[in-house]
């Protein structure tokens, strides 16, 4: 095995690793800094998903094995599909339970207390 492709893969994996871990860190920072549940959810569902997804991709790429890469891609796809669903469910449940938006909010057009508690 020559050194060229090896080095290229290492650089690509490193870029993915650094980007993914920075996204994860910023998502956690956003979780701490945003004022209410709904804004925090933005940080967790976007930056968090991308962060973990990039790290998974890095692991798949590092193996240099098509089966492992496909598995990592499947994991990434699964992650991207489930993150919005869980964010949506949590936001909906919190809003219906009556948790308020932050005072910075300018508008809330979602009607409250729709009495459909067992449909989720």
């Amino acid at each position: 095995m020559s050194a060229g492709p090896d080095l290229l893969v290492a650089i690509a994996v490193s870029v993915l690793l650094v980007a993914g871990s920075i996204f994860s860190l910023l998502a956690a920072l956003g979780l701490l800094r945003f004022p209410d549940l709904y804004t925090r959810m933005h940080a967790a569902s976007k930056a968090g998903t991308i962060g973990s997804g990039l790290l998974l991709l890095a692991a798949g790429l590092h193996a240099l094995d098509i089966a492992i890469l496909l598995r990592a891609l499947a994991g990434f796809a699964f992650f991207v599909l489930t993150a919005p669903v869980s964010a949506h469910l949590l936001a909906k449940a919190a809003h219906q339970a009556g948790y308020k938006l932050t005072n910075l909010s300018v508008t809330d057009q979602l009607p409250l207390a729709k009495q459909k508690s067992d449909r989720l």
Binding site: L26, A27, L29, G30, R33, F34, P35, D36, Y38, T39, A43, A47, H95, L101, T102, L104, S105, V106, T107, D108, Q109, L110
Partner: peptide, 14 residues
């Protein structure tokens, strides 16, 4: 997240 003042105007629209 990195901005010192986030200047948020959050809200829910239909």
């Amino acid at each position: 997240v990195l901005r010192p003042n986030m200047r948020l105007r959050p809200g829910i629209f239909a």
